[in-house]
């Protein structure tokens, strides 16, 4: 039984195929303007990588900003729930998830049974999100990966006015003009980011068993500073790309749904129609 999770985010879209407990494929793409196009493209890629077609998929759950308008979805679920399920599936016993996506940052706290106790997200500002790092990397003329790597070489991270992305940009330019070492500026960017995220996570009350997901988890600089700020070692999702934890969670829920529906005998036609309604071939 193959199911899919599709996370249509504001900056990237992710699709993940799951067969029982095995991840068959995982695709990540830049989102395009229409969420349904983003979803279709990223699903097509995931299917192609697994050499499957839409008809092979029993159930699809979508999540992310664009989740509501995806025609092939069987259901849609919020990314808070999906991220927590994905993280739990990969790291049983996890109690706190920090996810930093393109345009939001969320912290989710779970109880010992994996149920969500509380969650919070950043305000509407881009500071504290992946977008912030992207903007800063562009100003510095670095790739996102280099931004993370470089900061580990910094001996003297600068201070950065980073409450606002727009203003932080000015600051970075200011430091560049003053000839400050680029690694120190990169470190400042990552540190500023980590401080904002730490505030969001701390507002829930930090847990020892915590993980980090989302694109920013790939930035070693931010992660290192964040660990220092929070005083906690952050686990990284094993086996799947940290950006795909939400899509994975959606797939895990899809898997459960199908299993549950099989436990309770249902009229075959109804079951059939759900499966058929899953994905149309393009």
């Amino acid at each position: 039984m193959i199911v899919a999770g599709c996370d249509v985010g504001s900056l990237t879209s992710k699709a993940l195929l799951l067969n029982d407990r095995k991840v068959l494929s995982c695709a990540i793409q830049r989102s395009v303007s229409r969420p349904e196009d983003s979803a279709r493209r990223v699903m097509d890629q995931a299917l192609a990588e697994a050499s499957l077609s839409c008809d092979d998929i029993s159930y699809v759950i979508t999540t992310g900003y664009g989740r509501a308008c995806i025609p092939f979805a069987n259901d849609e679920i919020s990314e808070i729930t999906c991220h927590s399920r994905g993280a739990l599936w990969l790291m049983p016993g996890i109690r706190m998830i920090i996810d930093i996506g393109g345009q939001d940052c969320k912290a989710i706290k779970l109880d010992q049974n994996g149920r969500i106790i509380k969650f919070t997200t950043n305000d509407k500002c881009a500071a504290g999100t992946g977008r912030f790092l992207e903007v800063m990397a562009t100003v510095l003329g670095l790739s996102l990966e280099d931004l993370g790597e470089l900061s580990s070489h910094s001996r003297n991270p600068l201070d950065l006015a980073a409450a606002c992305t727009v203003w932080a940009q000015t600051e970075v330019i200011h430091h560049l003009n003053n000839g400050r070492p680029i690694e120190d500026i990169a470190a400042a960017v990552n540190l500023a980011m980590a401080k904002r995220v730490a505030m969001i996570a701390n507002s829930l009350g930090m847990e020892k068993s915590a993980c980090i997901s989302g694109g920013v988890a790939k930035n070693s600089g931010v992660v290192a500073y964040l660990e220092k700020q929070l005083g906690v070692k952050l686990k990284k999702p094993p086996r799947v790309d940290p950006q795909a934890v939400g899509a994975l969670g959606a797939a895990v829920i899809a898997h459960e749904r199908v299993q549950k529906s099989r436990e309770i005998p249902r009229p075959a036609a109804a079951e059939e129609s759900t499966v058929q309604g899953g994905i149309e071939s393009s």
């Binding site: 201070d159 006015a161 980073a162 409450a163 600051e171 200011h174």
Partner: peptide, 18 residues
């Protein structure tokens, strides 16, 4: 001036000075 008298993280003094 857009800045914060008690929080240099909004705008640094260097930027304000400029």
């Amino acid at each position: 001036l857009f800045g914060d008298a008690f929080d240099h993280r909004i705008t640094s003094w260097e930027s304000m000075r400029d």
